[in-house]
């Protein structure tokens, strides 16, 4: 499995782990929050023995505390945080934990499915108001009272997994994501094609995506 992207992400080979974070709360502070969160998750998972879903959720909670602590150290960073999605392969299962509107997609049998449920005003209130489009209801570092959310899926041969920020799924329609993931010969070209598609459609600079293929 291979992957690539731009901006705040993290990868681990053992256990197989992928993390994508998208910062918010002022440009510099947002980047910092995303980086701290990703480092905290990767660090905690690298240290976990027989890592399972509980370690991943605990790692995201740890990242939340790390970001909140860092934000408290400097008034300029007050309110910084990030959306985050992390996926772990443990035995026969893919464990996914997320906060905010970062998403995890699964392409199986040529069909694309989103495994995560956005924590956003739009998703939860059903509102299409443009003023609410960027309002997330949970975020690492600032609003995690409800905890991160966990979901899982059995892993099958040929599965393709995409973790991404709203910079990708916002401008690129699901059908296009499905097509690009399906037609790419390897994760690297899939990632490049997806990011290119986002930038073509006027996506922001901080498009972050991680793609992983399970051997067919």
């Amino acid at each position: 499995m291979r992957a690539r992207n731009e901006d705040a992400f993290g990868l681990l080979e053992r256990p197989p782990l992928w993390v994508v974070a998208d910062g918010m709360g002022g440009h510099a502070a947002g980047d910092r929050a995303a980086r701290i969160a990703v480092e905290a998750v990767v660090g905690a998972m690298a240290a976990a023995r027989r890592a399972g879903a509980e370690d991943l959720v605990a790692a995201v909670e740890k990242a939340h505390r790390a970001v909140a602590r860092d934000a408290g150290a400097d008034p300029a960073r007050a309110g910084m945080g990030c959306t985050l999605v992390a996926a772990l392969v443990a035995g026969p299962r893919l464990h996914v934990v997320h906060a905010g509107d970062a998403r995890c997609y699964l392409l199986r049998g040529g069909r694309l499915r989103v495994l995560t449920r956005d924590h956003s005003a739009v998703a939860e209130l059903g509102s299409r108001a443009s003023g609410l489009r960027h309002v997330v209801t949970r975020a690492v570092g600032v609003a995690l009272d409800a905890g991160p959310e966990y979901t899982w899926e059995g892993v099958e041969r040929g599965d393709r997994v995409l973790l991404c920020s709203d910079g990708l799924w916002g401008p690129v329609p699901a059908g296009r994501i499905e097509g690009l993931l399906r037609e790419s010969p390897d994760p690297l070209s899939a990632c490049e094609a997806l990011i290119e598609a986002a930038l073509e459609r006027g996506g922001p600079d901080n498009v972050t995506a991680v793609v992983a293929f399970r051997k067919g």
């Binding site: 399972g52 449920r117 966990y150």
Partner: peptide
């Protein structure tokens, strides 16, 4: 050491044996 875990999922709490 960890016998079971309870996790918050979109459909409510789930439990897994560990």
């Amino acid at each position: 050491r960890v016998q079971f875990t309870v996790l918050a999922s979109a459909e409510g709490h789930v439990i897994a044996h560990r």
